[in-house]
Design a protein around this nucleic acid. Structure first.
Lengths: 125, 125
DNA sequence: TTCAGACAATTACACCTGTAATCATTACGC
DNA sequence: GCGTAATGATTACAGGTGTAATTGTCTGAA
């Protein structure tokens, strides 16, 4: 269970796509990112290569094209990044952090209801 | 209201101290960090200089020593960093993020109660 | 069969980061 | 007054990052 490598800011965007569409081709990834973030194709290729080198992505040649697939688990990367953020910005203590987000950002009534349910489960468990 | 500069991982540790003890001397900061993080004094000095250059810290000569004080507001830095984290890791959507933390990490009954109170306030406002 | 176009690999390059070491200055003890 | 110690300033240096451009290779069309 090797821990995930460090994923940079821009690399996260690429990984998100790879997690949501496993086996995406380079072209698909490039197109998606060109559309949503207006990135240059060459830039995306560089990021793909770096992620392969870091062993965050693997690829398979499928004829002419490369199909990329994640080698690291999204949940684990999210957990690692969350942990690092929590430590860095809130000194590792959870409830000030949650308070910050609840206060600073709008939550729809539905979201509030969901959270209350979550808390209730947590409470009784 | 200039937006805060980007603060790196190690720089956060320094800023935390400067926020909690405004007007700390270089020596105090160095000692604190040497104790808690086992950093080399030279390393801390480098970080202080970089933060001054970034205009995150200012200083005043007080005789032989330098006293550092924050030029950026903790709340704003926390907000910027939180925003960036939320966007990067959770695609900007708050409730999956909150769910992640509530699920992954232990909350004491007290913390749960506090959060419920917060949510209640949010709800009725 | 050869050339152009597509796509991958390699190279570029400036700035940021972590982690210090070395240089310069200044004040204090002798 | 002069040398030494303390402390601030400058320099170092190898990765990492954002953002590509250039080079190499293979395939299909003419």
């Amino acid at each position: 269970m090797k821990k995930p490598p460090r994923i940079s800011e821009t690399e996260w965007d690429v990984m998100k796509i790879c997690w949501s569409q496993p086996h995406a081709s380079a072209q698909e990834i490039i197109d998606t990112l060109a559309a949503q973030d207006d990135w240059h194709p060459k830039t995306v290729k560089t990021l793909l290569n770096r992620l392969v080198k870091k062993r965050a992505l693997g690829f398979k040649k499928e004829g002419r094209a490369y199909l990329y697939h994640p080698l690291v688990i999204e949940k684990e990367c999210v957990a690692a990044e969350s942990r690092s953020f929590l430590d860095r910005v809130f000194g590792g203590s959870l409830s000030p952090m949650l308070a910050h987000f609840v206060e600073h950002r709008k939550l729809s009534p539905t979201e509030i209801a969901e959270l209350k349910t979550l808390l209730k489960q947590k409470e009784t468990k």
